[in-house]
Design a protein around this nucleic acid. Sequence first.
DNA 1: ACAAAATGTAATATATACTTGACAAAATGT
DNA 2: ACATTTTGTCAAGTATATATTACATTTTGT
Lengths: 65, 65
Amino acid sequence: MKNLKLKSARAAKDLSQQALAAAVGVSRQTINAIEKGDYNPTIRLCIEICKALDKTLDELFWEDG
Amino acid sequence: MKNLKLKSARAAKDLSQQALAAAVGVSRQTINAIEKGDYNPTIRLCIEICKALDKTLDELFWEDG
DNA sequence: ACAAAATGTAATATATACTTGACAAAATGT
DNA sequence: ACATTTTGTCAAGTATATATTACATTTTGT
């Protein structure tokens, strides 16, 4: 399923997928696929994304329900 | 680095690595390697582990510092 | 309307998460 | 002391996260 919390946190920082990708050291397609819900990132990448967006794991990656 | 928070949360539930592995549907060696810090699990596996141990991502997988 | 940037989405390739099977060492129970 | 469970670890295989390149569509700015 889509990760809209991530998409929205990224928008709140006014970062493009490209810019976030560069900030955390992965490709733009990887960020795109994570937002789209296409795959299942590693925890270390999730932590890097959280740091770049000033969020925690629970805020961006915990499932609701 | 070792994940002692995971090891301790597992101990608090009195589960062996084997039992936790079965509860979350991975091999025992995978749990062992995660506790040992040998690799970088996927977020979905982390979430399953958290659910099995009644913890959140921030409690078990967020880095201190 | 146009240009530029941002996003969606393929195909092929590589690194690594995870499996299975196996064995030894350490811990636990009786 | 012994048996059983738990943990550590290795080697070889499979599945998938991520990279790279490329192109089409959508969005944004002027």
